[in-house]
């Protein structure tokens, strides 16, 4: 497979977000998800808030959710490690079904198609074990065929009233 074969079109992810009623984003932006950031920021139906740190993206998303909006939180793998305590509080103790979009910054292309845990880079190979250690579901998007996992993440988060992580193993495409 060529590297580009791993890209999920950002437009397809955007369509799932619409289908799931998502109308807000809080974020510290992610290098991997640029194409998606670009789309969501320019969607007039989306409240899009840049935050100074991931803890704030999570607590602000919780406030939005309680107030009636349907936010997602976008960050990169370093950001996830930056906000574990807020994730525990908001996504588990607080029972807020937030879906986090997390990008695999630093993933070497030679790891594509291989287990994330085999990556040479700590921030890539520890992300899934950390999320699973919190007892939260982890959905890795590896190829366009994985797109249904995005909707599944929303369904699981909403059914269990807990956070869920959608992990972008590769750049979503700009189409």
């Amino acid at each position: 497979m060529a590297n580009t074969d791993y890209s999920v079109p950002a437009s397809a992810v955007h369509a799932v977000l619409r289908e799931k009623g998502v109308n807000a984003v809080t974020t510290v932006p992610d290098f991997i998800q640029f194409a998606l950031h670009d789309r969501l920021k320019n969607d007039p139906d989306m409240t899009y808030l840049e935050c100074s740190a991931e803890n704030q993206a999570l607590t602000t998303a919780m406030g939005m959710y309680v107030g009636g909006l349907e936010p997602i939180v976008m960050m990169q793998n370093q950001g996830l490690l930056n906000c574990l305590n807020s994730l525990r509080s908001v996504g588990i103790d607080g029972s807020i079904p937030l879906v986090l979009f997390v990008g695999a910054f630093g993933r070497e292309f030679s790891n594509l198609g291989q287990p994330l845990t085999d990556s040479r880079r700590v921030m890539v190979n520890r992300t899934q074990p950390v999320v699973e250690a919190l007892g939260l579901p982890f959905y890795n998007l590896e190829t366009p065929g994985d797109l249904p996992k995005v909707a599944e993440a929303f369904d699981t988060a909403r059914a269990t009233k807990r956070a869920a992580v959608v992990h972008f193993g590769y750049f979503p495409a700009w189409n």
């Binding site: 807000a24 808030l49 919780m62 406030g63 309680v66 107030g67 509080s89 908001v90």
Partner: peptide, 14 residues
């Protein structure tokens, strides 16, 4: 540290 973020989110939604 979470109170201000929670309040901002509520203010945006309401």
């Amino acid at each position: 540290g979470g109170a201000s973020g929670l309040g901002l989110g509520l203010a945006i939604a309401q």
